[in-house]
Design a binder for these strands. Sequence first.
DNA 1: GGTGAAACTTCTAATAA
DNA 2: TTATTAGAAGTTTCACC
Lengths: 159, 159
Amino acid sequence: MGKFKLDEIDHQILDMLIDNTRVPFTDIAKKLVISAGTVHVRVKKMEEAGIIKGSSLTLDYKKLGYSFIAYVGVFLNKTSQTKFVIERINEIPFVTVAHITTGKFNVFCKIRARNTEHAKDVIFMIDDIEGVYRTETMISLEESINDKKRLMHSIFNNM
Amino acid sequence: MGKFKLDEIDHQILDMLIDNTRVPFTDIAKKLVISAGTVHVRVKKMEEAGIIKGSSLTLDYKKLGYSFIAYVGVFLNKTSQTKFVIERINEIPFVTVAHITTGKFNVFCKIRARNTEHAKDVIFMIDDIEGVYRTETMISLEESINDKKRLMHSIFNNM
DNA sequence: GGTGAAACTTCTAATAA
DNA sequence: TTATTAGAAGTTTCACC
């Protein structure tokens, strides 16, 4: 899983698709002054290489009634139980991502819930998992997501 | 920014698009036994309502040479500086998301870097921001991302 | 609200360079 | 590797339910 070499054309294709996956290949072709067929072939190659893992919709969870975000640090009784606990945690749909971490916590996860009441339920679900000693919660008062394009540009420029 | 009422058809459309935004509307139409025109109109409405905020590619950052993930908790000298610090943090492209939080830290962010050496640079950039007292880093040894579909199903079933 | 069909646009694979 | 091409496929609009 090392680096993969993409050229300038690939970068530009990704740049146009990264925040709108439905941009027509013909538009990309026009902008890059290449043919739509070439765009097609290149995207396919990046998919086959696994660089492009997929595409996904960005939903407004606030508008869906899920405005509560928190991070939950998990302390375990024994580190050997980590795999088991991670699996149990991932069964909770309101956990969006979980990490095995160094430092204070053994496991660290992000949750999304309707409100504090609902978050309490989710945190209790985590607390109830066998092997969990205790948890520590940090509530997000405001989230600001950084533009994917900026990270991508930095990656391509390797700065 | 309250709840928005989506019916069963909308749920199913989102369900088909959530992890593959390029599924043809004709395919969705076939599966739901409605016309492609209806799918089109419904997607457009959800976009206009802001439920669908956009679409994005999922890239394999490991394959791009960026396999290092960490969370950085930030302590400030004064809470009043939070806005300023968040803005500065968001200027760093390797910070993927930043939060204002309750609990231990004033600000909490996730970073993605090439390796420990590079992560050190990123963390020092955060440390150097005016108003930052100190930081605390948790390195992710393993990340497991939960399927968006599962959260969506739970939202729709309001369980 | 939804449909179905027409007009238009885009995709995709084969061929050729 | 890339461009061209042409038929297949998808999107979008609209008159009509």
